[in-house]
Nucleic acid binder design. Structure first.
Lengths: 196, 196
DNA sequence: CCTCAAGTTGAGAGAGTCCTCAACTTAGCT
DNA sequence: AGCTAAGTTGAGGACTCTCTCAACTTGAGG
């Protein structure tokens, strides 16, 4: 790749990072090109589809989340580890509206799928996490906090922490009351994301 | 008003009710006009702004929610009343994507504002509801369940009940752990809605 | 310096939505 | 039946966003 092309790619990524973070994934591509000081044609040249740009921008987050999960697994207290992981993910959501959109749209399909399952089972075995929740129920936390982040990020930037705290209190073993309907199947959870 | 005009108004409302329910508030107005068998000009003639149509379609829901709140206030068990109210509102959300959008966008400004405050205080005095939550925290339930409804309505229509049950378990006095950040002020909660 | 593959450009086609308005139609009164 | 205010119509202007492509520019190897 020619060096001016590399530079333009970097500029596009930097612009996209900024705009996605401030306004979410639906920012017009023309605006990203303008912000990058590059024409719309160049943007399409580098990133034929919006998803290619999104994937490139948020590549690092996959590793970040995996790191969070691994650290959480080594926590002395399994429940604390579980809480730390969810808090970490929600902090990423709150820090970047683009990642918030991505997390909401990809909640249960995430990369740390296997890691999360172990995290959850470990927290259940330790007696901290109620035993009647499944991995697919974690989507409720992501979706819920995601909605709160969207609504409040400008006007009450820390409000999501309160939402998360309430949600976590509902996940504690001590709080458990029998749940109604069965959990979503993995297939259902996956399908739920297509619709948004 | 001429009787053909009345009829067209009814047709428009019926069409809007159907389409809003199925697809949410952002359905194109042209499609509503087509579904009603009426031209787009007539729609604009009757309802100059989208909000006028939305208000007319969901007028009845205001009364429904007020009724839910009043019934909840007379429940023998204050906590059960509180749960019944929230469940009722969420059922409305799940039954109608348009109302879901409306509830999410208008969560804390709702009509039963005063009624809801009494409902909440009553549930707290009875010892069922944790005492550190405020009215503005209810928005988390509406926003959260709203997001789950949106994501799952096609693929796992009952999933929101599980989300709500978990949220309610987090609101129980028994589950209470100290909450982080202070609650949103009413002003913040109101402002949060403008952004969406 | 020359060449040309690689890269950039931006006007414009296309799709979708909102909203208007001048021309037309009709309900309902006399 | 005739009149008129009330109502309807739908083409079209305005805006926004996506995506393409033929013409132009430039980096870098020879």
């Amino acid at each position: 790749m020619r060096k001016d092309a590399v530079q333009n790619r970097e500029r596009l990524l930097a612009a996209a990072r900024r705009l996605f973070a401030d306004r979410g994934l639906d920012v017009p591509l023309e605006e990203i090109a303008r912000e990058a000081g590059v024409s719309i044609g160049t943007l399409y040249n580098r990133f034929p589809a919006r998803d290619d740009l999104v994937a490139a921008v948020f590549e690092d987050r996959m590793a970040t989340v995996a790191g969070l999960a691994e650290r959480a697994l080594t926590a002395a207290d399994a429940w604390e580890g579980f809480v730390g992981f969810l808090t970490g993910v929600c902090e990423l959501q709150a820090a970047d509206l683009g990642y918030n959109d991505l997390a909401v749209r990809g909640a249960p399909t995430g990369p740390g799928h296997a890691l999360m399952r172990r995290l959850l089972e470990r927290a259940q075995e330790s007696g901290g996490l109620r035993s009647d929740v499944t991995l697919t129920d974690m989507a409720f936390v992501i979706w819920g906090v995601g909605a709160t982040v969207r609504a409040t990020h400008e006007v009450a930037p820390g409000a999501w922490r309160r939402h998360l705290a309430l949600a976590l209190d509902g996940l504690r073993a001590g709080a458990a009351r029998p749940l109604p309907v069965p959990p979503m199947t993995t297939l259902q959870a996956r399908a739920a994301l297509e619709g948004c």
